[in-house]
Computed example of a mutant assay.
Amino acid sequence: MVSLLRKLVPPSEYRKLLGAVVVIAANAGGAWTPIGDVTTTMLWIHGQISTLPTMTGLFVPSVVSLAVPLALMSFSSEVDDKGQNTDDVLASEQMAPRGQLVFAVGIGDLVFVPVFKSLTGLPPYLGILFGLGVLWILTDAIHYGESERQRLKVPQALSRIDTQGALFFLGILLSVSSLEAAGLLKEVANYLDAHIPSSELIASAIRVVSAIIDNVPLVAAAMGMYDLSAYPQDSQFWQLIAFCAGTGGSMLIIGSAAGVALMGMEKINFFWYLRKVSGFALAGYGAGIAAYLATQNLHFSPTTIANIPFISGT
């Protein structure tokens, strides 16, 4: 998304703000689906959350946590800055029909992963590998005999994978697993239970820490601290962990992979983000938590919305 912004908007303070909105949107959007973020995927694979309850329970809070910062930032003086006319850019860079086909199949493969797991009971990574195989066959077929378009095939795309990033996450998870095996995470969990009486407050505390430390190790630690016997699948605790860890990463630019990517691509200063964006992200997080607690206490979700007579048409 930041790469797209760089094509549409010239370098300016306005583009930096738009990049910050992308970070908030990426973290909020990743919280309400099992495949939307590394943290929610981890919780989904290990059984702490399931697909439909997570989507119905966290959709409204995620939208609120984006809408509130966006509304507040729209009153900022920097948004009066104007970017270039994007119509000419879009007109000159229309996606080719074959590109549209590959894009549609790729999105379909991602959406198919939860369905694959539900139908077969196999681990989600096998669904991803199956989708990759479909894309591999498709790109080989549509670019067969075109030597100048070899870079558009899956093997060439795989060669550009961020291996260092994958190894970084692997190292984090190995470290957290070592702490769990040593029993240290259980001791932390017992300490939190003794000093913090509410699971909501524990999840909120994790959110605060996730603004400083990447949310992946925090969620991995929470999974090692509490098992399903303490908090069953789809309980408020696990849903709040998924929501808080994701949206909490927007508080500081170093709190999420999206923020770190933005900082590197746009050369954004840590303190610029702190002054210009962190307050808005905090307001969105607070509003999202309030929306979540309200919907849970009222048993209110998108499913119940559809059952309201004047909406359902009955």
Results as ranks from 00 to 15, higher is better:
Ile268Arg: 07
Thr304His: 04
Leu101Trp: 08
Ala157Cys: 10
Met1Asn: 05
Asn297Thr: 13
Gly57Leu: 01
Leu167Trp: 12
Asn297Gly: 15
Val21Arg: 14
Val68Thr: 09
Gly108Trp: 04
Ser3Cys: 09
Val216Gln: 01
Val38Tyr: 00
Leu282Cys: 04
Leu252Arg: 06
Leu52Arg: 08
Ile24Lys: 02
Leu158Phe: 04
Asn269Ile: 05
Ala220Lys: 00
Ser76Pro: 10
Ala230Asp: 11
Met1Gly: 07
Gly29Phe: 01
Asp37Asn: 14
Asp87Ile: 06
Glu146Pro: 07
Ile172Glu: 10
Gly284His: 02
Ser62Val: 02
Gly313Asn: 09
Ala281Asp: 12
Gly133Val: 05
Gly83Met: 10
Ile311Gly: 07
Ile213Tyr: 09
Leu5Ala: 04
Ala222Cys: 10
Ala205Met: 11
Ser204Gln: 04
Asp214Met: 06
Pro97Gln: 09
Ala166Trp: 13
Gly133Ala: 11
Glu146Ile: 08
Asn190Ile: 15
Val89Cys: 10
Phe75Ile: 05
Gly29Gln: 13
Asp227Arg: 00
Ser77His: 13
Leu5Trp: 03
Lys16Cys: 10
Lys267Asn: 15
Ala96Met: 11
Trp272Ser: 13
Ala203Ser: 15
Asp37Met: 05
Gly127Ser: 14
Leu101Asp: 03
Arg207Cys: 15
Ala166Arg: 09
Thr163Tyr: 08
Asp227Thr: 03
Gly279Asp: 12
Ser159Cys: 09
Pro10Asp: 08
Met265Leu: 15
Leu72Glu: 08
Trp238Pro: 05
Val188Pro: 08
Val102Arg: 14
Lys186Asp: 11
Gly99Lys: 12
Ser175Val: 06
Thr39Val: 11
Gly29Asn: 08
Ala28Lys: 12
Gln84Arg: 07
Ile35His: 06
Phe300Arg: 00
Ser147His: 13
Trp238Gln: 10
Ala290Pro: 09
Val219Ala: 00
Ala242Met: 00
His46Asp: 09
Phe280Asp: 02
Ser204Arg: 01
Trp32Val: 00
Leu58Arg: 05
Ala287Phe: 10
Gly47Met: 07
Val9Pro: 03
Leu201Arg: 11
Thr303Phe: 06
Arg151Thr: 10
Ile137Ser: 10
Ala261Leu: 15
Gly288Met: 04
Leu52Tyr: 13
Asp227Ser: 01
Leu282Val: 03
Val64Pro: 06
Ala25Val: 14
Ala157His: 11
Arg15His: 03
Asp88Gln: 07
Ala157Leu: 06
Tyr191Phe: 12
Ile172His: 03
Pro69Met: 00
Ser175Phe: 14
Val21Thr: 08
Leu293Pro: 13
Pro217Asp: 00
Asp80Asn: 13
Arg98Gln: 11
Ile241Trp: 04
